[in-house]
């Protein structure tokens, strides 16, 4: 039997579900989206299991699934895998720019459609939903070290490429819209033409109100007003321990971190770009450097000296 964490078997099952979603059998969009959302979960499992089966095993007290996935226990122990939300959270950390927010929205729509009274899969029209789905699925296919052709076949790659092109256009349109609106708002405020309730809200703003509160932050020029805005990120891509001799027997040391940009906000024009894709589309730096105290990042090795 296939192991339940066999990444190739998981990928093939995802392929079957994608076939159900794309086959021209007269399925309604709701059913197609349901199959596609199930395929996304399988792709997430395949991508993580490819790194280690332990990444998809449910960590219970007895650790049955973990033990089986790690190969320490062999036998008929039932293997249970983690929920979709956990899979997607892990994929977001491991396979950038996979979006936890987008994938969880797809999973939530699926759950509502399957388990609740929701009559339709999503209020988002198919023309807008498929580009967003394929933007995420493509990242997971790549994380499986496969190409889209492996998942959908060469005869259907064109359909997916059209969706991906549309997704890129959607992101560009959204970026343009957000930047333009930020400029417009700032212009209205500066010219005194802003409506009273909005102007009152504008003046109540405090620096930092728009930040996401991620672990690390840096600065970058705002693509809307040119002022200095805040770039934020959660994941450290590289870390370097630096030190300088300040006296004969005294050193200063610090950490220089490179952090992935995930979120941008500007206190002046109030622009917010809340995803990696939007930050990237606005040509903001993909990473930023920060300096932090060594103790904030890691504790030095113990030495009994």
């Amino acid at each position: 039997m296939s192991k339940p964490w066999d990444p190739d078997a998981l990928f093939l099952k995802a392929k079957l579900f994608v076939n159900h979603a794309m086959d021209e059998e007269g399925r309604q969009f709701d059913e197609q989206a349901l199959w596609a959302s199930l395929a996304l979960e399988l792709l997430a499992k395949a991508a993580l299991a490819r790194v280690s089966p332990v990444l998809i095993a449910v960590p219970t007290e007895e650790g049955h699934s973990l033990l089986v996935a790690s190969g320490l226990v062999d036998g008929d122990v039932r293997f249970t895998s983690v929920q979709a939300k956990t899979l997607f959270a892990r994929c977001a950390r491991a396979f950038k720019p996979f979006s936890e927010k987008e994938s969880k929205a797809i999973a939530a729509a699926r759950n509502d459609y399957l388990h609740a009274a929701a009559p339709a899969f999503t209020p988002i029209p198919p023309d807008a939903w498929w580009p967003r789905f394929w933007a995420q699925a493509q990242i997971l296919v790549n994380a499986c070290d496969r190409v889209l052709e492996d998942l959908v076949g060469s005869d259907r790659v064109g359909i997916v490429d059209d969706h991906l092109t549309k997704n890129k256009q959607n992101i560009e349109h959204r970026r343009e819209m957000l930047i333009e609106r930020a400029r417009q708002r700032l212009g209205l405020y500066q010219s005194g033409q802003m409506r009273a309730p909005e102007a009152q809200q504008w003046t109540q703003h405090r620096p930092g109100d728009l930040t996401a509160g991620l672990s690390y932050s840096g600065s970058a020029d705002c693509p809307a007003c040119g002022d200095s805005g805040t770039l934020e990120g959660e994941d450290v891509e590289s870390a370097k321990h630096e030190f300088e001799r300040v006296h004969e027997d005294d050193y200063d040391d610090w950490m220089e971190l490179t952090v992935g940009s995930e979120y941008f906000s500007c206190d002046r024009c109030r622009l917010v770009l809340d995803s990696y894709e939007l930050v990237d589309s606005a040509e903001l730096p993909p990473t930023f450097e920060i300096t932090t105290q060594v103790g904030d990042y890691w504790e030095p090795e113990y030495g009994n000296d």
Binding site: S2, A9, L12, K15, L16, N19, V152, G153, D155, R156
Partner: peptide, 21 residues
């Protein structure tokens, strides 16, 4: 070929089941 490469079959062998193209 697109159907041969991408169509998915359930393969039955006694109690074992697996997917294949």
């Amino acid at each position: 070929w697109a159907a041969l490469e991408n169509g998915v079959f359930l393969v039955k062998n006694g109690s074992e089941r697996f997917l294949a193209s």
